[in-house]
Lab assay of single mutants.
Amino acid sequence: QVNIAPGSLDKALNQYAAHSGFTLSVDASLTRGKQSNGLHGDYDVESGLQQLLDGSGLQVKPLGNNSWTLEP
């Protein structure tokens, strides 16, 4: 069960990665100043990332080996 409060997208993504045990490689300029609506409930990694990114204009991309990145 994930419980991440709304706020900074950077912070939300870092909390989610730490909670879910995956690696997220992101260029900080992509997420700077963006906000997230947070995340509450049970999600697989990709669904949770998509939910956190909702409205940010960013997309999640798998890199393999439980690693992910973001792209515009």
Score class of each variant (00 low, 15 high):
S47W: 05
G64L: 04
Q51S: 08
I4L: 05
V2N: 03
V45M: 06
P62C: 11
S29M: 10
P72G: 08
N37H: 10
L49G: 00
Q15I: 10
G55A: 05
A28K: 11
H40E: 10
A18E: 11
G48R: 00
K34I: 10
S56A: 07
V60L: 12
L58A: 01
S67Q: 12
K34P: 07
F22E: 02
Q35C: 15
K11L: 13
G33C: 14
P6A: 12
D44A: 07
D54Q: 15
V60C: 13
L9E: 02
V2A: 07
E71W: 07
S56Y: 05
G57D: 07
L52S: 01
L52A: 03
S47C: 12
L52P: 00
S56I: 06
L24H: 03
G38V: 00
H19I: 15
L9A: 01
A5C: 13
D42I: 14
S36G: 03
Q59N: 11
A18I: 12
G57T: 02
P72R: 10
Q50D: 06
G41H: 03
L30W: 05
E46I: 14
S56V: 05
S47I: 08
L63D: 07
K61G: 04
S8T: 10
A28T: 11
Q35T: 13
H40S: 12
Y43N: 02
V2Y: 10
L49P: 03
T23R: 09
K61M: 07
N14E: 15
H40A: 10
E46M: 14
A17K: 06
V45I: 14
L70A: 05
L70E: 01
S25H: 14
V45F: 12
D44Q: 06
T31S: 02
S56W: 05
L24D: 04
L24V: 07
E46Q: 12
S8A: 12
A17P: 03
S25Y: 15
L53E: 00
N14Y: 13
G7R: 00
G7H: 05
L53T: 06
G64R: 04
Q15L: 11
P62A: 13
P6D: 04
S8W: 12
S20D: 04
G38A: 02
H40Y: 14
A12E: 01
N37E: 08
L9C: 05
Q50R: 15
L39Q: 01
T23V: 11
L24P: 02
I4M: 02
L63F: 08
A5T: 08
V2G: 03
K11Y: 14
H19G: 06
V45Y: 07
Q59R: 13
G21W: 06
Q1L: 13
N3K: 10
D44K: 05
S36Y: 02
G38W: 05
Y16C: 07
T23P: 02
P6V: 05
L52Q: 00
Q15E: 15
G21H: 09
L58P: 00
G55P: 02
E46L: 15
Q59E: 08
E46K: 11
S36C: 11
V60I: 12
L63E: 06
S20I: 14
S8G: 06
G64M: 05
L39I: 08
V60T: 07
Q1Y: 15
T31W: 05
A28R: 12
L70D: 01
G48W: 07
P72H: 09
L52R: 00
A17D: 02
S67D: 06
Q1C: 15
S25D: 12
A18V: 12
